[in-house]
Amino acid sequence: MNIVILGAGQAAASMAAKLRALGHQGQITVIGDEAAPPYQRPPLSKAYLLGDMGLDRLTLRGSEWWDEQGITLRLDERATAIDRDRRAVLTDRGEYPYDALALTLGASPRRLPDALGGSLPGVHVVRNLADIARVKPGLLPGRRLVVVGGGYIGLEAAAVARKLGLEVTLVEAAPRILGRVAAPETATMIRDLHHAHGVEIVEGTAIARITGEAQADGVMLADGRHLPADLVICGIGIAPETALAEAAGLVLDNGIATDAQGRTSDPAIWAAGDCASFPVPEGRMRLESVGNAIDMAEAVAANILGVGADYVPKPWFWSDQFDAKLQIAGLNSGFDRVVTRPGAGAHGGSVWYFRDGRLIAVDALNDARAYMIGKRLIESGRSPTPEAVAEASELKALM
């Protein structure tokens, strides 16, 4: 069987490795539009941007590994179409026939519209190596940065810039940071962390536009205030890459829609990672995380080879900001109660999410023990009561 993997990120690398580990002897071709081989994305806005990690450590596999595994890497090559009738991927350099095609296309950063100044020089996003190469020269001590968006990407960029000595203001249009992804208690811990490091956070205020003519020179807020800036970083979320799938006539639903095994509406085409949505009891889900990219890609690899097992996600996430690590287990959607526990340090603690009395997620800031115990409880299907979490003198007793 000739397998083509379109997209060359974390999910692609994990899928290719799993196919070989499971004994697939046929051809595997990985096609990506970046010049670099598959690399980790999370450190881009953290250690790599800070200069603490080089490209060699960012890269997932050395070139010799791909050769040893007999996997063809086609880099710096842009796919232009999927011909489902002929079972071929068309690129700007040729075409690749397939027996099975896997779409691991990832996601792209959302950008501010041109009418709001989103395309001005000096306005940046941080998603890939080229983005970092553009923004890094401007991150100089004493310069003024405005970050638009109070999600994890925006907060991580603000933390790195502050560590590099910039004056940083973060603007969030929603009433508070992390409004879509975390409880107010977690947002308070993160806000306090940023304030302690000198980041100014403006919440509940939309931006009217980015100002400047030849170059961005500030951000005009909807309330009339003007924030001077030498550069602007937009961290307003990502959108799944679906253009090729849509043009090929595949069903979309918050990404490329798959069945429980990762198969799209075309039985010869599969999808995994940030670009794919899959069924869960509550409806459909799309997870934007390294954990999901790896786990779903490996599950799909097995199913391409005929295992026929449904993918069951075990969500986990993390975010590094300043010297703090936020670790998240589970999904907090639909929570109706939270329990907080203090941590050992000045900036730390844990937030435990419950729905109908059942533990569904844990946020742990600088509290690895709470994270590990919460993760084990959630993944094993065991749930302490909210009262037990609140009152336990030692978390291990919850096990």
Rank of each mutant, 00 (worst) to 15 (best):
L395C: 05
A88E: 12
A214W: 09
G122N: 13
S383W: 09
S14T: 03
A88K: 11
Q10G: 05
I328E: 12
I177H: 09
H347E: 07
R376M: 15
V251A: 12
R78G: 06
L103Q: 05
L105F: 01
A344L: 12
T104K: 00
L112D: 13
E64C: 13
V160E: 04
I201Q: 02
H194K: 11
M372S: 13
P184C: 00
S393Q: 15
P342A: 14
A301T: 02
G381F: 12
I256D: 00
A79G: 03
I207W: 08
V219A: 15
V232T: 12
L73I: 01
T186F: 15
G138T: 14
K46M: 07
A107S: 06
P175F: 14
A216V: 08
T205H: 13
W65H: 10
A187M: 04
K163E: 11
E34L: 06
A208E: 14
V160K: 03
R74Y: 10
K325T: 01
A130V: 00
A324K: 07
Q321F: 03
A12W: 03
Q321A: 00
W66S: 11
R284M: 05
L120V: 06
I28W: 02
V89P: 02
I378C: 08
R176Q: 15
G165A: 00
E288N: 15
G149H: 04
D356M: 08
L178Q: 03
A157D: 13
A102P: 10
A302G: 15
L120Q: 11
A344D: 14
T264A: 01
Y311V: 02
G9Y: 09
G237Y: 02
Y311N: 08
G334S: 01
W318T: 04
D99G: 14
E64A: 09
I207R: 03
L140C: 01
V146P: 09
W316K: 08
R84K: 11
G118W: 12
L58D: 02
R358A: 03
G23S: 13
I190E: 00
A8L: 04
G308I: 12
V312L: 12
V4D: 04
